[in-house]
């Protein structure tokens, strides 16, 4: 299988970047997309060129490290799939594949396809936790949590923090990510004592990090590898209004 990659190359965050073309032959359909990039990188090394920097780790769609814009879509042509789960059989022999990094003001490019997503970590630091020290827990079954509550909490807790929601959003809104984390904890009885504080502090940080506001294009819902629904954002809004007006 032969394809032409057009890949964004950029030396460092303040350098100017551009798309660069690489023709590559000898790929197989069973290769994952990232393995095709590995393959390309190996050929670059042998040609004495610098490898293309891209991020990936677990390569099974759970760690959230990988993430690039492939042919105009976050994580490639399929819905709800991480970049590492895309395989070359999704492309045709002779295709041109354009690969760009996540684009968002809050995610500055580090190098080539690697972006800095530490804004997410800073949002998490603003309260995406339950303030309880190790060693202070009561017996687990002392807190009964209805199955539906645990399940709906798990639905949003599944977020892998890849940043596709931000990258695909025309507003670079982090609403899906932030709402997922807030709802995960605020739905559970353990998370409720600090619920309002968490909500206000995390959303404030979200704005400080220069993420845009959600206009419900729902693109994020389509690209999210964890299939988190935009109803999560609506739920965060409901919690916000409740926190502001009803204390």
């Amino acid at each position: 299988m032969k394809v032409t990659f057009k890949i964004w190359r950029q030396e460092q965050s303040d350098a100017k970047g551009a798309l660069k073309s690489y023709e590559i032959d000898g790929l197989s359909e069973d290769m994952s997309f990232l393995e095709a990039l590995d393959f390309l990188n190996e050929s670059l090394v042998l040609k004495n060129e610098k490898v293309i920097a891209f991020e990936s780790d677990c390569r099974e769609g759970i760690c959230g490290s990988c993430g690039v814009f492939i042919n105009g879509r976050a994580h490639g042509p399929h819905d709800n799939m991480a970049t590492c789960q895309v395989h070359m059989r999704s492309f045709k022999d002779g295709d041109t594949i354009v690969v760009e990094p996540w684009r968002a003001g809050a995610f500055p490019i580090v190098k080539d396809l690697v972006v800095d997503r530490s804004a997410f970590d800073r949002i998490i630091e603003q309260g995406a936790y339950i303030t309880a020290k190790t060693g202070t827990a009561a017996e687990a079954n002392a807190i009964l949590i209805p199955k539906e509550v645990a399940d709906s909490s798990m639905d949003v807790a599944a977020c892998i923090g890849c940043g596709a929601c931000v990258a695909t959003c025309k507003n670079a809104s982090a609403a899906l990510f932030v709402s997922a984390k807030i709802n995960h904890l605020n739905k559970l009885p353990q998370g409720q004592p600090e619920g309002h504080k968490r909500l206000l502090e995390m959303t404030t940080q979200m704005e400080l990090e220069n993420f845009g506001s959600c206009t419900f294009t729902a693109a994020c819902e389509m690209e999210c590898p964890a299939e988190i629904s935009i109803s999560s954002i609506a739920e965060m809004n409901a919690r916000y209004i409740k926190a502001k007006f009803f204390g």
Partner: peptide, 9 residues
């Protein structure tokens, strides 16, 4: 402003 640079495609 939040989005910054747009994707080429």
């Amino acid at each position: 402003n939040s989005k910054g640079v747009q994707n080429t495609i």
